[in-house]
């Protein structure tokens, strides 16, 4: 690629703040992939990745939240160990969990749009039903695209894909939504 050295095009201050927050949100989603909780309904442990997707939409709004998730996928594709179990590489983006991963930018955008509308305001002003509704729609987006991914990549039929890829995990998603409401209602996050 060509390198420009003649003039320096500085990034303006508002964008710097959003870029930094988007990068942190992407990295936090990656760090959440390492946190697993035992889950009685499935032998696979539950990670907090999806919580990172919710938070990107809630804290950054639809545009930067979606951008943060695109960043997450790009960094993972070129080798940052940010996917579940510390995986990385383009292979993960066309592997069994491909659908879930590709849905994250869309889900973060949907959650952000439903909670904030066009302009990103303080989360304290948003009612709990609206928060839960937005995240429920986000979960639907993630699992719909995830199940479609399982069907496309592994060639599973629809009922089998829904059973292995969605039904077992939905109770855990309810727990994560409860956690997300607890987070945005927390006194410790007034700065957000």
């Amino acid at each position: 690629m060509s390198t420009e050295t003649e003039s320096v095009d500085l990034v303006d201050d508002a964008t710097v703040k959003n870029v930094a927050r988007a990068a942190l949100c992407a990295a936090l989603t990656g760090a959440f992939a390492y946190v697993s909780f035992p889950y009685p309904l499935s032998p696979a442990p539950v990670t907090l990745q999806v919580l990172g997707v919710f938070l990107a939409g809630l804290l950054l709004g639809p545009v930067w939240g979606g951008a943060a998730m695109v960043l997450y996928l790009t960094a993972g594709a070129v080798g940052a160990p940010v996917f579940a179990g510390g995986e990385a590489g383009i292979g993960s983006l066309v592997g069994p969990t491909a659908g879930y991963l590709w849905s994250y930018p869309l889900a973060a955008g949907v959650v952000g749009a439903l909670v904030h509308g066009r302009s990103v305001g303080p989360l304290g002003a948003v009612g709990v039903p609206r928060l839960i509704g937005a995240m429920a729609v986000g979960v639907c987006v993630i699992y719909a695209v995830g199940v479609a991914g399982l069907m496309a990549v592994l060639g599973l039929s629809l009922p089998n894909a829904v059973l292995t890829g969605a039904v077992v995990f939905l109770p855990a998603e309810a727990l994560k939504m409860a956690a997300a409401v607890g987070i945005v209602r927390s006194d410790r996050l007034t700065a957000a």
Partner: peptide, 21 residues
């Protein structure tokens, strides 16, 4: 479990936002 998730995630988000600024 959901309380533990929330506690851990609040700490994580708090640190991340502090680092972002």
């Amino acid at each position: 479990v959901h309380e533990r998730m929330a506690l851990l995630a609040v700490t994580g988000v708090e640190r991340a936002l502090g680092r972002a600024d």
